[in-house]
């Protein structure tokens, strides 16, 4: 009896590709999503909802992600080129992450606060709160400057320490 069950399970896995719990979970997901869709069935704004839902996925997976993956390529290419052409001088402290960290910090703040930095919500905000968003992009520039300069200072300190550690005789060798 136990053996038959095990065989049945193997057959099920071979046909379906996962255990039965998997099927229960995805059907549960579809049913709940279907229920939500049914609640929105008569909503006249459904085309906009659909566009923004699908657009969010396309915007991230096919636009935002390739952009930041490509943005990282020059740094990787530079490392490759350095290794290829400047083999004789070892790198004291790799610079790459001192570049990546401020870029990512500035980018994630810029992304999260994009409507404020670009003043896209300003009209509604003025109506609601009586204030504008005029100077806020400057704050973002300042923070960006702080991140890059901070990273540069840390890089310089690390570079100085590494240079002191590398004694002159070894340098000449």
């Amino acid at each position: 009896m136990k053996l038959e069950q095990a065989e049945g399970m193997t057959l099920w896995r071979r046909l379906y590709g996962a255990n039965p719990l998997h099927l229960l979970a995805v059907i549960g997901c579809f049913a709940l999503s279907g229920y939500v869709v049914s609640m929105l069935w008569d909503d006249p704004t459904w085309p906009a909802l659909l566009i923004w839902f699908v657009g969010a996925v396309i915007g991230h997976d096919l636009i935002l992600y390739p952009l930041y993956a490509l943005a990282d390529q020059p740094t990787v290419l530079a490392r490759w080129a350095r290794r290829r052409y400047v083999r004789d001088r070892p790198v004291l402290v790799p610079a790459i992450n001192h570049l990546r960290a401020p870029v990512l910090g500035s980018a994630v703040l810029g992304l999260i606060y994009l409507p404020t930095i670009t003043r896209h919500g300003e009209d509604a905000f003025r109506f609601t709160a009586g204030l504008d968003m005029a100077g806020i992009y400057r704050h973002w520039l300042l923070i960006t400057a702080g991140l890059f300069l901070g990273s540069a200072v840390i890089y310089a300190i690390r570079l100085g320490r590494a240079a002191r550690r590398t004694t002159r005789p070894t340098d000449q060798a």
């Binding site: 709940l32 999503s33 229920y35 939500v36 906009a48 923004w52 896209h120 919500g121």
Partner: peptide, 26 residues
């Protein structure tokens, strides 16, 4: 951040969107 450029109301969209996410998340 007061950016309402969607063409739908925020509250229903964010609420029902949450339940679609909950379905996927669980």
């Amino acid at each position: 951040q007061y950016d309402y450029s969607w063409g739908f109301g925020f509250y229903p969209a964010h609420y029902y969107g949450a339940w679609v996410f909950i379905a996927g998340f669980v």
